[in-house]
Amino acid sequence: MYKYIIKRLLALIPVVLGVILLIFIIMSLTPGDPARIVLGNMASEEAIEEFREAQGLNDPLLVRYSKYVLEMFKGSLGSSYRTGHSVLSELLARFPATMQLATASILFALIFSVPIGAISALKQNSVFDNVGMIVSLIGIAMPAFWLALLLIITFSLNLRWFPSSGAGSWEYLVLPTIANGVSCFANIARITRSSMLEVIRQDYIRTARAKGVSKRDVTIKHAIRNCWIPIITIAGLQFGTMLGGTVIIENVFGWPGVGDFLLKSITSKDTPCVLGAIVLFTIVFSVVNLAVDIIYAYVDPRVKAQYK
């Protein structure tokens, strides 16, 4: 198992290097001179040249790439062109907020979606099933931006229950969590329902019932446990994506996470910040995927056997 984890972590290195090269190429292909964007159009040619020289922007792409990779292995992600702050400190300042929102959103989604999906399957074609699946469909179809504004208008502007934007105490987390978690909830609820429908038609479930095991025990101890693999897969993917920053939600709710930081960095051609954020996302996404694979092993002993 440990060998497997180490192997997966080592496989991250070429992935990160490839991603960095890709971002370097994309950023150099996009129009605009970072020096001019950062210093403004009033800056003199001398100041622009000085800035370009200081930031190594006059070097060829491969030289810049090599320097960046070397620095990265020394633990530095460079400094922001725009603010002069260390990219690592900028990311560390914002990542906890993104982590907080993503964790709350995935928990919100799991807590509601798994029971609703399971009950919908057990009561297939009932009113509960139909209502549950219509709600899920709406959740998937509804743009997060629109839902976020609806929540703000209803719960902030009209009812004054929760603040409309910012971060701080738990009240600030409620609306962004719902806006962020709804589509995730809808996806997981639908996956849970379909895999539950598949499982409850299996022979071993019928056998358990024939042996006299109660419906409750069959559902909890046999059926749901066998549904976990697809649920964990989709939840892991969603969680990884959310940890990459949810630009729209962070923007609408003024949430100080990495998504908004990345967007701003891209528009200002702040390459070190874009690279730093993408490297972070790559690592986080890969680690979440690895965690999902490890969880598979604990959920399904057959998978664990394959890791040896």
Partner: peptide
Amino acid sequence: FRYIAEDNSRVVALETGE
């Protein structure tokens, strides 16, 4: 000085007194 990027969110924050 609070940073609220989205136009509508800024307006709502004023209307709610935040």
